[in-house]
Amino acid sequence: MTLFMQLQGSLLASMRKLGAVVLFLGEILAQCPAAFTRPRLISAQVHNAGVLSLVIIMTSAFFVGMVIGLQGYDSLARLRQEDILGAGVALTLIKELGPVVTALLFAGRAGTALASEIGLMRATDQLAAMEVMAIDPIRRIVAPRFVGGAISVPLLTAVFNAIGILGAWFIGVYIMGVDGGAFWSQMQEYVDPSDIGEGVSKSIVFGIAASLIAVYEGYNCAPTAEGVGMATTRTVVTTSIAVLILDYMITAFLI
């Protein structure tokens, strides 16, 4: 009975939080037109969340691509199908790994930075000061960061995919001796625009989810050092779970 009540309580709390996040998204979207009138605020956030994440995204992508290249070559060589390595790698990255791993890395690098930055502004009364100065913090602080993050994730995903494919090419063609022409032509043959569309859709949804969770956790954190720390942790945990659940839902919907 106690376990059931605990489960019920935790489910109710999750539903309440989901509702609060959706309402918060509504508030942000209402302020987005105003945020778009000041593109410099958004481009600064694309720089913070996107450009500054490039190193970790590119490094991770190259190694992920090399691993897929190696594993793919090992599996395909057993079937004497090494030539379709390029297609396999591209489909894996574009449809699945690219959007998911980029979103998870974004949560760890940029999401935590967003949550702690906004949380610290809450803890040091900077957001309260803005409210008293008749400046809406959602319009001035939250909306540009949300939009900047949501724009960055699809762009970072594209970079991740490109570098990942390059990593797989390096292992497959340069090290393991797969024919270069076959690597690229098979990729061209088997990757449809719909596959790219699936990856792009996922990256857009993940970008919105990851940015929304980060700004929500930062904006609503307890105004203490511990509160900011917990908001940062929750950003990574919630984004990771949300991305994996959303990934399944989108895949099931599109297949």
Partner: peptide
């Protein structure tokens, strides 16, 4: 004027 000044850091 806030107690901790609340300047934008």
């Amino acid at each position: 004027l806030f107690q901790n000044s609340a300047l934008l850091t």
